[in-house]
Amino acid sequence: MTYATGPGAFLIPLGMAAAAGLMGSIAVMRRMALASDALSHIALPGIAIALLVHVNPFLGGLIALVLGTVLVWAIEYRSRIPTDVVVGVIFSAALAMGSLLASGDELIEALFGAPNTSDSFNLIGLGAASLVIVFIVRYRSQLVIRLVSPDLARPAGINVPRLDLLYLLAFALTIALGLRYLGVLLMGSLIIIPAATAMRLGTNLRTMQTISVAIAMLATLSGMLLAPVLCLAAGPLVIVIAASIFFLSLAVRRA
């Protein structure tokens, strides 16, 4: 087992964690926690195909996530089937296809991540994390009104279908960012667990989002630092730390 070393190796995971914390804050308020977790599995067939044709798996996962996301959005708006139902069906299909196409170590790596991987996508990863953060900050007000009620959003001049598509695409990008470090199975958890903790502790939007980002970054940093010391895989350790913070938060009485 190899581990990330040097200050530069932490930059992208921390950027990914910040993006995950912000994205999750909106997802949990929209009651998309389970759909979020399932959505990350859509990357699997893309990763499998990329491995088969010897292309960067991150790229394969990203393409599958973008296509899957657009499909989820289109089915939802055409058929009026709720997002979680559409995501549930596409998730199952993607998981089955991915399992058929990939095998052995490659599949394990895709499911749980490989933090030691180093490639030319570092700069793109940092750019993508920045893009997600800018999206949430730029569209925060629209997203807040949309999550309270789409019926309030439309008269306020918000293009709800367009906003939903952009949000899902930003969501897909956030998941793609974490695929290398946490894998398909765990990335959804880094989006949801810190935000779920922050939802318990925060009493307004600003504190909730700050707490969510802080927990995601803290869990990621401490997981990556502790993994070599404990001889454990970094990805699962990051999620165990995030989940531990969540359970600790249950002891805190909300103001």
Partner: peptide
């Protein structure tokens, strides 16, 4: 348990409008 205050809600509308 939505961590949104009335002020968050009104500020969001002011921003969009």
């Amino acid at each position: 348990d939505l961590p949104l205050t009335g002020r968050d809600f009104l500020n969001a509308k002011a921003d969009v409008a």
